[in-house]
Design a protein around this nucleic acid. Structure first.
Length: 876
RNA sequence: GGGCGAUUAGCUCAGUUGGUUUAGAGCACUUGGUUUACACCCAAGGGGUCGGGGGUUCGAAUCCCUCAUCGCCCACCA
C-alpha cells in the first residue's frame, strides 16, 4: 500500500478515534492485571474546553496511554461536575433573558430549567476531549448529580453528622450578594483595591467634645453599636464609660475599651458594627453589644438604612458621604489601599453576614491527610514545592461552610419539625426523617406534612471531594469489586488553584471514608498564559479557540506544542508557534515513514557494513534514550521525556540512522537493513504514541510488517535491555569526523557531490565506523600516513589529526584556525594545571576526580603538541 | 504583615547530593544548500563574566549571608 504524501490529521483523528472506541480499547474491567487508574478532574458540566483543560487532559492521556502499553489495566474515569454556583448563575441569567425571575419559580420548576440546560450543554466538553484524543473509559462517565453519586453525598453528610462532625451554626459567613448565597473561605478571592479612609466625627453625649473615627465603609455607621478605643490609650481615658451619638441615625452608643484596637491606626478610635464585620462581631459578643443588620440579601439597605432603604451599598456609600460632608461630620477623606474579598465565581464584593449555616469540623479530619503528604510520603506532590502550601493550609484549616443558598445541587438532608434551633433531624428521606423526628420528640402525631426540608444545597466540592471513591460506588458499597480493584487511584493531574478546594479535601475524604489515600501522586500543572505572560481569559480575548487549534495543527501537533514547555508547576507561556513545532514534528515522522516505505527491497543484496554499524549504534542509542525517558516519567518530567523522544527521532533516527541506511540512488536495500529500519521505526512509534496518538496509529497501521500487536494503542511498550556504551562513544567520534568534513566542504565551497580523500596521521588509528564516515562525508579513499601532507586542510578529533588534501591557495586561514584551537587548548590546559598544581586539591579531592583531571591534562598536552607541529609545518 | 518559589544564551527552560571538558537543550537567529522522505527541510555556525555584592571550600550556576527585581500562597488591621 502506498502511503499518501501528506498526513491528513483531521481524517486520521476521526478514523482512529472511532476505531479505538469500536474495539473498546479505552474500556477497563477489573481483571488479574495490575490496575492503573486516573480519575479526571471533572470539568463543569456546561463548560467549554479551554487551554487549561487541553494541557491537563493531554498529560493524563499521555500517562494513561503509556500505562496501557506497559500492560497495566489502564482506567481513566471521565465525568462532569454540576458546579452549583456557576451553573445556577447561568440558568438564572438565561431565565432573566426570557423575562423570568428565579423568585417567581418554585424550586421544582427552577430545577426543571436547570436540568434542561444541563442536558443541552452538558457533555459538550467531553466531546471536545475526544477531539484531543483523550482515551477515557467513556462507559464509566459520571456526573456528580447522578443518582448513585447523589446518594453517596447524602450518606456521607448523614454519617458525618452522626459522628458529630457536622453542625449548624450562626456565624459570620462570606455572603455573595449577587448569587445570594454563602461561600466557603476558599471561594473568596482578596483583591487589592483603591478605596478611601473616611474620618467621621461622633459627638460625645452631654458634651461638646467630638471624637473622630476612621472607616472605609461609611455606610455601615447605620449599624454601629459602639465605638472602641484601646484601654491603654491615654488620649481617651476621660471618655471611658461615656456615650457618643452616631451621625444621621442619632443613636446613642457606648464607648468601650478593647485591646484589639490598634492605637497607631487611623485615629485610634474604631467604630463597631457587629453585623458586618467578623472582628466587630467578636468584640460585640465580648461586650454584649446589640447587632444591627442593615442589609438585605442583595446588599441593598433594609429599614435600618432609614432614607437609604432599598438602595445598593455602593450607591449609599457615595450618597452618605455627601450627606455626612454636608452636615459637617466628615473631617477628611484620604485614599487608602486595602484588600476586598470578592466571589470567585461572580466577582461580586463579598459581604460578611451573620446567618445560620452548616459547617464541617475539619481539624481532626485533616490530620491523616496532613501526615500522608508531609510525613509518610504516601502521597507525593509534583513539584514538591507545593508541600509547603499544603502544610500551611492544613495546619490552619478552618471549619468548612458547606451549605449554599442555591437550588442546583444536593439538598441538605435535614428536616425541621419546629422552629427551635434544635428542632430538626438528619435523614436520607422524608420518611426516615419522620421516624427519627417521632423518636426524638416522642410525639407520635407528627406527620410528613409537618416536616420541612432545609432549602439549602451543599457546596459543590462536598460532592467532588468524594470523586475517586464515588465513581466506583465505594460509598454505597464499600466492599464492591470495582472500588477494591481500582482504589486507591494512581495519579491525579490538576491545577494548583484547586489544591485546597479539591485535592486536599479528596485526601481528607479518602482517609475518612476508605481509611486509605485516594491517589499516590499529584501532578500539578502550571497555568496556561499567553505569550506576554497574561492569564488567559474571556475578557482579554487572548484564549485561543481550542478546537480551532486542533483543526489547524492537528491534535497531535497541539498536544506536542502544549507539552514541549510544560514542566510541572511551571506556568506555560502559550504561543501558537509551539503547535507549529508540533505539527512540523508530525510532518517529519510522516516523511521518515514515506522514505522507508519507498525503498525497494532486494533479497540478494548484502548488508553494507555501514548499515550494520549504524543499526547497531541505533539499538544502543534507543536503549540509552529509553533509560532517560523512563527516568523522566518516574519524576513526572513529561516535557523532558517528550524532548528526549523528539531528539531521538529527529536527530538520531532521521538525520543519522536513515541517512546511513539509505541505499544509494537507484539501488535497492538489503532485506536485513530494511527490516531493522522498520523495526526501529515501530519502536519509535511506541515511544511517540502517548504524545501523538493519531499520527502514530495511522503509520503503525500502514506498515506491512508488524509486531503481532494489532493496534499500536495496545502494543507493548519497548523493553529495557542492556546496551553497549562504547558503541555510543565511538559513534560520537564518527559524528565529529563527519561534522568536520562537512564543515570543511562548506568553508572551501566543495559540493557534496565531489568525493574527497581523507588522510589520517598515524598508522594504527582505528577510526570507528569508518564506512559510515565515508558514506556521510562522501570520502572515496582513506589513507594512513606518517608525514603530514603538504597541501591539505586539517582538523583534529580527540588527539588525532586528519587531513583533506586539496590545493590551498592561502594558508592564512588554516593558520588562524589552528591558532584559535591552540588558544583554546592552552587556556583549557591552564585551568586544569591550576587545579593540579594546587597541593590541597591533589590531597583533598577524591582520587577519581584527580585522575580525571590528570587525564584531561594529558589529552590537552597531546592536542597542543599536534597543533604546534601543524603550525610549524605550515609556516615552513 | 507572614511564608514559599524564582532570577542561567534573543525566548522558554535543564543543570540531580558542590568536581567528565572554559555551562547545556529546544525554538529563534546567521551563513550555505533545487542530492531521488521532508524548505513543515538539510548542513554548518554565532551567542551566556549563570540577577548584584560578600562569604565557605582545594574547587560554587550548585552551599551560606545580604541586596534587588518578579511571581505565587496565606493573613481580620478599621
Amino acid at each position: 500500500m502506498n502511503i499518501p504524501s501528506k498526513f491528513d490529521s483531521e481524517a486520521s483523528e476521526d478514523k482512529w478515534y472511532s476505531y479505538w472506541i469500536h474495539n473498546d480499547y479505552f474500556h477497563s474491567e477489573p481483571d488479574h492485571r495490575t490496575p492503573y487508574t486516573i480519575v479526571i478532574p471533572p470539568p463543569n458540566v456546561t463548560g467549554i474546553l479551554h487551554m487549561g483543560h487541553m494541557l491537563n487532559n493531554t498529560i493524563q492521556d499521555v500517562l494513561i496511554r503509556r500505562a496501557r502499553m506497559k500492560g497495566l489495566n489502564a482506567c481513566w474515569v471521565p465525568g462532569t461536575d454540576h458546579a452549583s454556583i456557576a451553573t445556577e448563575a447561568k440558568v438564572v441569567q438565561r431565565l432573566k433573558e426570557q423575562g423570568i425571575e428565579k423568585s417567581d419559580l418554585t424550586r421544582e420548576a427552577f430545577l426543571g430549567h436547570a436540568w434542561s440546560w444541563t442536558h443541552e450543554h452538558g457533555g459538550i466538553i467531553l466531546e471536545q476531549l475526544k477531539k484531543l484524543g483523550c482515551s477515557c473509559d467513556w462507559k464509566r462517565t459520571k456526573f456528580t448529580m447522578d443518582p448513585d453519586l447523589s446518594e453517596s453525598v447524602i450518606r456521607v453528610f448523614i454519617s458525618l453528622y452522626e459522628k458529630g462532625k457536622i453542625y449548624r451554626g450562626h456565624r459570620m459567613v462570606n455572603w455573595d450578594p449577587e448569587a445570594q448565597t454563602t461561600l466557603s473561605d476558599e471561594e473568596v478571592i482578596y483583591e487589592e483595591r483603591q478605596g478611601n479612609l473616611y474620618y467621621l466625627q461622633y459627638t460625645v453625649v452631654n458634651s461638646n467634645e467630638k471624637i473622630t473615627i476612621a472607616t472605609t465603609r461609611p455606610e455601615t455607621i447605620l449599624g454601629d453599636t459602639a465605638v472602641a478605643v484601646h484601654p491603654k490609650d491615654e488620649r481617651f481615658n476621660h471618655l471611658h464609660g461615656k456615650k457618643v451619638i452616631v451621625p444621621i441615625v442619632g443613636r446613642e452608643i457606648p464607648i468601650i475599651t478593647d485591646p484589639y484596637v490598634d492605637i497607631e491606626f487611623g485615629t485610634g478610635c474604631l467604630k463597631i458594627t457587629p453585623a458586618h464585620d467578623e472582628n466587630d462581631k467578636a468584640i460585640g459578643e465580648k461586650h454584649g453589644l446589640e447587632i444591627i443588620d442593615i442589609f438585605n440579601a442583595n446588599a441593598t439597605l433594609n429599614s435600618f438604612g432609614l432614607h437609604y432603604e432599598g438602595k445598593d451599598r455602593f450607591v449609599v456609600r457615595k450618597e452618605i458621604t455627601k450627606e455626612l460632608s454636608e452636615k459637617g461630620y466628615l473631617v477628611k477623606k484620604e485614599p487608602h489601599l486595602h484588600k476586598v474579598g470578592t466571589s470567585e465565581r461572580t466577582k461580586a464584593v463579598i459581604e460578611p453576614r451573620l446567618s445560620d449555616q452548616w459547617f464541617l469540623k475539619m481539624k481532626e479530619l485533616a490530620q491523616p491527610a496532613l501526615e500522608a503528604v508531609l510525613d509518610s510520603d504516601e502521597i507525593q506532590l509534583f513539584p514538591k514545592k507545593f508541600n509547603n502550601t499544603y502544610r500551611h493550609w492544613m495546619e490552619n484549616i478552618r471549619d468548612w461552610n458547606i451549605s449554599r443558598q442555591l437550588w442546583w445541587g444536593h439538598q441538605i438532608p435535614a428536616y425541621y419539625y419546629g422552629d427551635g434551633n434544635n428542632d430538626f433531624v438528619v435523614a436520607a428521606s422524608a420518611e426516615e426523617a419522620l421516624q427519627k423526628a417521632i423518636e426524638k420528640t416522642k410525639n407520635a402525631s407528627l406527620q410528613l406534612s409537618d416536616l420541612r426540608q432545609d432549602p439549602d444545597t451543599l457546596d459543590t466540592w462536598f460532592s467532588s471531594w468524594l470523586w475517586p471513591i464515588s465513581v466506583f460506588d465505594g460509598i454505597r458499597f464499600p466492599d464492591n469489586e470495582e472500588i477494591n480493584y481500582y482504589y486507591p487511584t494512581n495519579d491525579l493531574v490538576t491545577g494548583p488553584d484547586i489544591i485546597f478546594f479539591w485535592v486536599a479535601r479528596m485526601i481528607i475524604s479518602g482517609y475518612e471514608f476508605r481509611d486509605e489515600k485516594p491517589f499516590s501522586n499529584v501532578y500539578l500543572t502550571g497555568l496556561v498564559r499567553d505569550k506576554q505572560g497574561r492569564k488567559m481569559s474571556k475578557q482579554l480575548g487572548n484564549s485561543p479557540d481550542a478546537l480551532g487549534l486542533i483543526k489547524e495543527f492537528g491534535a497531535d501537533g497541539v498536544r506536542v506544542g502544549l507539552l514541549l514547555s510544560a514542566a510541572a508547576g511551571n506556568d506555560l507561556l502559550f504561543d501558537e508557534s509551539l503547535c507549529q513545532q508540533g505539527k512540523n514534528f508530525s510532518n517529519k515522522i510522516w516523511n521518515a515513514t514515506r522514505l522507508i516505505q519507498g525503498w525497494e527491497v532486494s533479497e540478494d543484496a548484502h548488508q553494507p557494513l555501514y548499515s550494520k554499524q549504524g543499526l547497531e549504534w541505533y539499538e544502543a542509542k534507543f536503549q540509552s534514550t529509553l533509560v532517560e525517558i523512563e527516568d523522566h516519567f518516574s519524576k513526572y518530567r513529561i516535557s523532558d521525556a517528550l524532548m528526549a523522544i523528539y531528539k531521538l527521532v529527529w536527530d538520531d533516527f532521521c538525520s543519522w540512522l536513515l541517512e546511513i541506511v539509505k541505499p544509494p540512488y537507484g539501488s535497492p536495500i538489503d532485506r536485513i537493513s530494511y527490516q531493522k529500519a522498520v523495526y526501529y521505526l515501530e519502536q519509535n512509534l511506541k515511544l511517540l504514541h502517548p504524545f501523538m496518538p493519531f499520527l502514530t496509529e495511522e503509520i503503525w497501521q500502514f506498515l506491512e510488517q508488524r509486531t503481532p500487536d494489532k493496534a499500536l494503542i495496545v502494543s507493548q511498550w519497548p523493553e529495557m535491555k542492556k546496551f553497549d556504551k562504547t558503541l555510543l562513544k565511538n559513534f560520537e567520534t564518527s559524528v565529529s569526523l563527519v561534522a568536520n568534513i562537512r564543515s570543511i566542504r562548506k568553508e572551501k565551497n566543495v559540493s557534496f557531490k565531489e568525493a574527497l580523500s581523507l588522510v589520517c596521521l598515524g598508522d594504527s588509528y582505528a577510526i570507528p565506523n569508518l564506512e559510515i564516515v565515508q558514506k556521510l562525508g562522501n570520502i572515496d579513499t582513506v589513507t594512513f600516513v606518517n608525514e603530514k601532507p603538504s597541501k591539505a586542510v586539517s582538523f583534529r578529533v580527540d588527539a588525532f589529526e586528519f587531513f583533506i588534501p586539496m590545493t590551498v591557495g592561502d594558508v592564512t586561514e588554516e593558520l588562524e584556525k589552528i591558532q584559535e584551537e591552540l588558544k583554546y587548548a592552552k587556556g583549557f590546559l591552564t585551568s586544569v594545571q591550576k587545579k593540579l598544581s594546587n597541593e590541597r586539591f591533589v590531597s583533598g579531592a577524591p582520587e577519581k576526580v584527580v585522575a580525571v583531571e590528570k587525564q584531561k591534562e594529558a589529552d590537552a598536552l597531546a592536542k597542543i603538541a599536534t597543533l604546534e607541529a601543524s603550525l610549524e609545518s605550515l609556516k615552513s
